[in-house]
C-alpha cells in the first residue's frame, strides 16, 4: 500500500508535460508492464512461445533474452516508421503492414548479423529468432506504444519492461514445469492442460500486483 501512495504521489507531479521526461511515469510504465499488466499472464500476448519454450530453464532464458532484444529494436523501428513516415504522409492505416514487415525483416537481419559476428550468441539465440516473428508480444508492444501515444523514450522503456515481464513469466513457468515432471499428474491433464493450470495459478499471483503504479 505504501508504494501505491508513493507512486501516485510521484505521478501527480504538477505539469508533467507529455514531452518532458517524468520519473514517476517511467516507474509506473515499468511496474505496469512487468507485473500489473504482465504481457503473458494478464494481457495474453506471446502465449505460444510461453508454452513452447518453457520446458527447460536454459531455453527459457535464451528465448527471454532474444525477445527483449528484438522487442527493443522493433519498437525503435516501428516508432520511427510511424512518426517519421506514416504520420507525415497520412498513411497511418498502413501501420499494421508496416510493423509486421519491420519486425520480420529485423528478425532476419539480427539473425544474419549474429551468425556472422557472434557465432556464440547465435548458437545460443539462433533457434529462437525465427519463432519471434510470429510472437504476438512483439507486434503487440509496437501497437500498444502507438495506442498509448508514448514518446520514443517511454516506448523504449515500455518495450524493455514488457520483455522483462515476458522473460520473468517464462522463467518462472520453466522452473515450475521442471518440478512438475516429478509430480503425479492425472494422465488426462498431462502436458498442455496442466501447463495452463499452472499458468492460471501464476496469473492469480500476479493479480496481487493490481494497484501498483496503475
Amino acid at each position: 500500500m505504501n508504494s501505491t501512495v508513493l507512486l501516485s504521489a510521484l505521478l501527480a507531479t504538477p505539469d508533467s508535460g507529455s514531452q518532458g521526461f517524468d520519473l514517476g511515469k517511467m516507474m509506473a510504465i515499468i511496474i505496469a508492464s512487468i507485473f500489473v499488466n504482465n504481457f503473458v499472464l494478464a494481457r495474453f500476448l506471446g502465449i505460444c512461445p510461453f508454452l513452447g519454450v518453457s520446458k527447460e530453464l536454459d531455453s527459457a532464458v535464451g528465448m527471454g533474452a532474444a525477445v527483449i532484444f528484438v522487442m527493443t529494436l522493433a519498437t525503435l523501428g516501428s516508432w520511427a516508421a510511424y512518426n517519421l513516415l506514416l504520420v507525415p504522409m497520412g498513411l497511418t492505416y498502413l501501420s499494421t503492414i508496416a510493423f509486421i514487415l519491420i519486425i520480420a525483416s529485423l528478425v532476419q537481419l539480427v539473425e544474419m548479423i549474429l551468425q556472422k559476428f557472434s557465432p556464440a550468441l547465435y548458437s545460443a539465440l539462433g533457434i529462437f529468432l525465427p519463432l519471434i516473428t510470429t510472437n504476438c508480444a512483439i507486434l503487440g508492444v509496437a501497437v500498444l506504444n502507438i495506442d498509448e501515444k508514448y514518446s520514443l523514450g517511454y516506448s523504449l522503456i515500455n518495450a524493455i519492461a514488457a520483455g522483462i515481464g515476458f522473460t520473468l513469466a517464462l522463467i518462472l513457468m520453466a522452473g515450475l514445469r521442471q518440478r512438475l515432471e516429478l509430480a503425479d499428474v492425472p494422465p488426462a491433464m498431462k502436458g498442455k492442460p496442466v501447463a495452463f493450470l499452472v499458468a492460471g495459478i501464476m496469473s492469480i499471483a500476479f493479480l496481487g500486483f493490481a494497484g501498483l503504479g496503475g
Binding site: 505521478l11 501527480a12 505539469d15 508533467s16 507529455s18 511515469k25 498509448e148
Partner: peptide, 9 residues
C-alpha cells in the same frame, strides 16, 4: 487553463 491530464497524454 492548466492541463490536468498531461500524464495520460
Amino acid at each position: 487553463l492548466k492541463n490536468p491530464y498531461a500524464s495520460c497524454d
